[in-house]
């Protein structure tokens, strides 16, 4: 083989990148994430099976046990499966965000992450692009779930399907940022099981995803306080209100604040001059 005419003489290199080049980079990262997702159809199916099981089996079983009184944003009594649907949307974003962080640990172990991190674009831009790619994939999963739920009788107003998009985007950004921050702290793929047990499940169960906060307060004031400290609580409420054409301003502000906090932490953690990565022997090579 010979590469002598493939590159040609080394040309002069311009300084900096244009806005168009930033867009090319963003598009490349989005495309790669989309292709990886399409190549892993089982990942798409499994991401839907989990919330659908909750909707079809759990909600049906508990419909008679767990009554839901009229609480905003609902204007009437709702079936239990209607109540938990926004929580299940949040569940998809939560698991997808964590899966995205899992893939970053895997990429780091396998070396694929290096190709991203040695790009000359600013590190924060690369990480935000990767986050956007992960969130885009999550949102597609949520809409696929909502489409199936429609046939199961969960029929929010059609405007809700549009208005929920920014809520899903913000919540997805918050949860993916948290996943990215966690991925910077995980040295090995095996440690990810701990994240499942110590982060995902507690976040999901200590939230209004499955039962309203007032019911939790009645049964356990301590658990209610924990729920209020849980960022996922606000993601679920933001989605719930948006799905019915309303904005929960308190949740919106808190989701934005948590997103900034987690994203800032993740960018710092992946910056070699401030983060953890350079202090660990974790890029898969020899000394």
């Amino acid at each position: 083989m010979t590469l002598q005419s493939a590159t040609g003489p080394v040309p002069a290199i311009e300084r900096g990148f244009s806005a168009r080049q930033y867009l090319v980079c963003l598009k490349g990262i989005l495309t790669r994430e989309g292709l990886r997702f399409l190549n892993q159809r089982e990942r798409f199916i499994s991401s839907l099976v989990r919330p659908l099981l909750w909707l079809f089996v759990f909600a049906a079983g508990f419909r008679q046990v767990l009554g839901v009184s009229i609480i905003p944003p609902y204007k009437t009594y709702v079936l239990y499966e209607v109540y938990i649907t926004p929580g299940l949307c949040g569940m998809i974003l939560l698991f997808s965000g964590m899966q995205s962080s899992l893939s970053m640990v895997y990429d780091r172990e396998m070396g694929n992450m290096r190709t991203l991190l040695v790009s000359p674009f600013p590190r924060w831009f690369l990480l935000v692009s990767k986050l956007l790619a992960g969130v885009s994939v999550s949102i597609m999963q949520v809409y696929a779930f909502l489409a199936i739920a429609w046939f199961w009788g969960v029929k929010p107003p059609w405007t809700g399907y549009v208005l929920v998009l920014p809520a899903l985007f913000l919540s997805g950004m918050m949860l993916c940022s948290l996943g990215m921050l966690l991925s910077s702290m995980i040295k090995q793929l095996e440690n990810f099981a701990g994240i499942m047990n110590f982060v995902i499940f507690p976040m999901y169960f200590a939230s209004p995803a499955l039962y309203p906060l007032w019911r939790i307060q009645e049964s356990s004031p301590l658990l209610h306080k924990i729920c209020l400290a849980n960022p996922f609580t606000y993601a679920v409420e933001l989605i719930r209100f948006a799905l019915y054409g309303q904005v929960d301003w308190g949740s919106l502000m808190l989701v934005v604040a948590f997103t900034i906090l987690f994203l800032g932490g993740a960018i710092l953690a992946y910056d070699p001059s401030t983060g953890l990565l350079g202090r660990k022997q974790d890029t898969g090579g020899n000394a």
Binding site: R20, C25, G28, T31, R32, S119, P120, F121
Partner: peptide
Amino acid sequence: LSYHASLHGIGR
């Protein structure tokens, strides 16, 4: 390869 090109701002 196309992914790498985009990471350097090279169009399709």
